[in-house]
Structure formats: structure tokens, C-alpha cells
Design a protein around this nucleic acid. Sequence first.
DNA 1: AAGCTGAGGTTAATCGTTTAACCGAACCTG
DNA 2: CAGGTTCGGTTAAACGATTAACCTCAGCTT
Lengths: 334, 334
Amino acid sequence: MARLKDVAQLAGVSTATVSNVLRGAKPATPAVERRVLAAAAELGYVPNPHAQSLRTGHSRALGLVVPDLTNPYFPALVQAIETTARALGYALIVMDAGNDGARDHESLALLATYRVAGVVWVPVDDRTTVDWPFPIVTVDRPLDGCDAVVADHAQGGALVAAHAIARGHRRVGLLSGPRALASAAARREGFLRAAAGTLEIAWEREVPFSSDLPPAAVERLAEPDCSLLVCANDAIAVGALRALRDAGARVPEDVSVIGFDDVPWAEFVEPALTTVRQPLAELGAGAVAMLHARIAGPGDARRFETHPVTLVARRSVADLHAAASATPPAGGQT
Amino acid sequence: MARLKDVAQLAGVSTATVSNVLRGAKPATPAVERRVLAAAAELGYVPNPHAQSLRTGHSRALGLVVPDLTNPYFPALVQAIETTARALGYALIVMDAGNDGARDHESLALLATYRVAGVVWVPVDDRTTVDWPFPIVTVDRPLDGCDAVVADHAQGGALVAAHAIARGHRRVGLLSGPRALASAAARREGFLRAAAGTLEIAWEREVPFSSDLPPAAVERLAEPDCSLLVCANDAIAVGALRALRDAGARVPEDVSVIGFDDVPWAEFVEPALTTVRQPLAELGAGAVAMLHARIAGPGDARRFETHPVTLVARRSVADLHAAASATPPAGGQT
DNA sequence: AAGCTGAGGTTAATCGTTTAACCGAACCTG
DNA sequence: CAGGTTCGGTTAAACGATTAACCTCAGCTT
């Protein structure tokens, strides 16, 4: 592989000049510049990133630490992050923390030894102090003192309430997520605020983010006693769908269900799930852009971005204004 | 951060000695060895990987190139690869080729500039010549001249046939995948061989790996004319489920469906899908182990590993031997 | 006792960049 | 025209490891 020295020799200048020209660090005579560029092109020169990193003390690599790749939330996020990182000239070192807080920090430590220029981090637990030799931006879990991009969960909750109201629902049941999680709390909060005065909360159960509903919730679902089930999560919604089916209730004819996240298979369950879509691609791209900016300006004020979510209406919530008796037309997706 | 030099100074020896001791390259006096280890521990010394790479010409990083992270097949694979790579002391640089052959090669080129020690590659198209400055092992798509791990698709096909026979099916319809893909061909082949003489192939349609079935296939499904639908893929199976539902057929009472892959939501569709599970974790771990071996022994013979698949029986295929009229018990998953 | 050997260290070159320090020529400028 | 500036370029010193070559000295052999 061609080295800087080879380019310099071919162009008949010193390595310093080549380096300066190639990086646009110092201006050079047009003639010299042309010769250098030509030589570099001819040799197919590509700088050795390790030499660069050694010299400058930082690499053109970014780290990404996620709690668990098999969580359906992440692949789209990772993809967006990788794509925009690459477009900005960074390589991406990915680490999976296996939902383990200790491994989370171990990963950051490892990234530190690699002198990455920055890290995109989705922490497994919300509150952990941070003190690392690189800038960090977190996704979806704000940590004090470091940049963050988040989806607007509260707005999502409001969207759900609005949709319910628009479709003529009055009494709803709530399967809310772990109150301890900021995102779950925000969804609930946003929903409640927008529902206030219009929607009646028949009952509420706090359940984990999982399709395996606790028995208490399953029992409750045997006699729903409401026209709409608001779930904090698509996983929960799928669990609800299953429980309702087992109880002999038809969705959405007897009771409607709405989820949150728009996991990849939300459209494949029966009936296709109405849910709130998180802007994963935007979140990922935004995080990398923010990190890039922070690398350029370490001293700037803390950055914080919140991205709007959208509701995607499918078949799982009935329109009570439409002929109340008729079955909604099949295949009515999107 | 502590450098080799600092350790040497603290231990009262030369940097060469420290380097040798730490890597176990050359034996040293027990006393010296102890001093060095103590010093390194005290300073929390971690070698600078860029300096190492610069000097040795290769890094302790592996590359991973996949066609498309949002394909449900990959997250579990990537996770296994990352985990075992990390256990072996490698960092993992992940690249998404966006299902684009050109980008695929571009990614490899980029990895070359990073002097990765090796690459795990899932090529977007099967036949591409390979000539790179690092060892490669491919997953699921063997390329001549480079190591590979693959799932035993033919065996999977045989498993499907055996299951069909065991459950009393006689006439089956085939929704086979793109014949051009080696994996699809192997599945079909394995199935046909095991079915020969026992199962009657009522009809066959070649369709792409997608839930959006071509009209021709949908039409065929309106009048299935068989007791079991063998799908080359879970995506296809989901499409079939949808088409059958639209046609008013009940699964599995009227017709059974079987898939392949065991995507994460195979258990969430209605009815839960019987399918063949690919050993993603084993495939990933195997690939990295193989790559590691190849890095150690560049001259060794070509390696090729095939991993067995397993059938996971859920509700979507009926047992014709059981009371033919009765509905299978609900909730009978696993 | 002279000479060889080998074990255990050290010295210094090297990997491919970046960048501070320097240098000469050309270009004002008063 | 003598004396700054600028401009465009070079030289050489890092960065932090690895490793070939060399050195020293204790222990053996004859």
C-alpha cells in the first residue's frame, strides 16, 4: 500500500507538503497542489488511520453501545447511525451490552482504549455518571451533562389520546409500562394530559415491557370493560392481543388495541396494529450529526434534540363513529 | 493514560522488557516479571492499539459486512459475532451494505484501509471474486476460495418434509424461493428429496423472499387444493397467512402453513408459525472462531462448517392424525 | 584459565503520519 | 535599498508500541 512518502517522492516534494495539501491544512502553489493530487491519485493513496490516530491522539472511528441488538428497536437505529457515520468519514465500532450495566461501562472503557472520537450510547440504565475521554451523545435516555437525542414520547401519548377521541372511544384501559423508565412515564403523562376531561380511564395496570403479561393483567383483560386498550409498547400490545383472543374477544370488533413503537412486525400481527412510530432513522442520524458537531466544538453548550413521532393507523382500533355494527373492511391497512 | 514507557520507568527496566513480558514473548526473571506486572497493574496500563497496529501492520479489529441490518435475520447473528469477537479480544467494525453490491465492496475496501485482521462477510450477491489483504469468512453464502459457515438448509428442508409426513399430510403446495439463491435451492432440494414417494406436490410457485406475494401466488392460494403450504421463508409464510385469511380459509383447520427461518415474530403471528430455526448464534460464533483460526494459520486448508437447523413446532400446522374435526387446543405454543 | 554458550537485558530503528520550527526568496514599504 | 512580512516549502521531532541486533555476565567445557 502506498505511503505518504511514496506520494511525496513521486510528486517531488516533502511529505509535509503532501500531508498539508491532502488535508487542506496549508495552501500551496497550484502547480504543487496539482502534482501532489495527481501522485496521490495515481498511487491510490489512502492514509493509514493508525498512524494518524497515533499522531493526533484520536481516531476517525465512532463507538456505538446498545443494550441489546435483538431488541427490535435497535436494528433500524444502528443502520441509520452506521450510514450517517460512514457518510461523515467515520468507521463504527459496535458493542452490545447484553442488557448488563456492568458490561455497558466495560464497553465504554474498551472504546476509550481505541481512542474513538466519540460515542453514541443507549445506556441500559438511566442514571449513571459519565466521565470519559470522549464526547458522548445518548439516544432516548438523557443523562445530565451529556448531549442527547430523544423521541417525543409525551407527544406520542397525546397522539394516542387524540386518535382514541377521534374514533369515538370514551372508556379506555391502560397497560402502562414501568413507571421508573423516563420514556414510559412520558408516554403515560402525555396521554393522560391529552385525555383529561374527555377520556375516562376505566382502570390501569403497570406491566413490564414484554409480551408475557402478568396474570393480574391477563385477568383484567378477560373482562375488558372498555372500548380501547392503550398499551405502552407494541410488545405489551401483542400480549394483550393474545390474552384477548384467549378470552374470546374479537379485536377490534369487541375491543380495540393500540401500541407504541411500531416494531417491524406490528403490521403482521392479526389485526395489524395501530401504533406510534418512533423516528429511528432520524434519531440515529441526528445523534451522529450531534456527535460530529460536539467533536468539532467541545466547549459548546449542551445539545438536546427531541424528534416528533407519528401515529400509524392500522386495523386494531375501531372507528366507533362508523356503522357501529359493521365489521371494518378487511385489508384496510396503512 | 499510561504508556509503555511509564511502566518501564516504574519497574526500572527497559520498554523492550516490558513489552516482552506483557506479551509473553520472551521469558524473564521471575523478579523482573513480577515488578513489570505490578507496575502495569498499578498504572492501569493498556496498550495503545493504534501504536500496535502501526508497528505490526495489523489491528486487533475485525470487520463485519452485512447486506441489511433491518433484515430480521441479522441482529441475532451480529450479536453473536460481536460477543465472541470481544471475548477473543477483537473490536468489531460493522458496516451495512444497504443491499447494494457496490457498497458491499466499498465496505471491504474501507476495512482494508483500517488494516482489520479479518472480516466476516455476508455478501449481498453470491458470486463475486475475492482478493483482499485480509482473511474472510462468509456466512451462509459460500464463495470459492474463502472459508465459510452455513446453515444446513437441505437438512431443514428434510425436516419440513418429515414433519409434514409425521402429521399425516399428503398433498402439499410449494411456495419456493428464488431458485438463484443457493440457500433457497438447498431448502427445496432437501425437501423434495425427503418428500419423494410419500408427499405429493400439488403445485409449486417460485416467489421472492417477501410478504408481498405476487398475484399469481395469491390466486393459487384462493383455492389451495392441498393440506399444507410449504414456504421457503417466514416472510413468504406470513404473506400466505394473509392471503389465506383474505380468501376465508382458516389456518390450520382448513390448511396448514410452515415457514423457514424462525424470525423473531414467528411466534406472534396468528396462528403461531411452525418453522425451521437457523442456529444464528452458533453461526456467528463459528464464523468468528474460524476467522480467528485463519488469522493464526493463513496457510491452512480451506475451512467449511455446516450447522444443523431445528424444527420448531407451533400451531400453524395441523396434526391430521388427531381428531380430524376438532380444533387444536389454543395456546399450544412452543 | 581461556573460550564458548545462552539467558536475560538494553539500545535503537522502525511503522506512517502530523506539526512545530525553521529557512530562503519574493514582496512590499517607508 | 535596507529591513520587515508573507508565502511556500523543508527538516526533523514526535506519537507509542515492536523487534532485530547487540551487549554482559554467569556457568560450563576442555
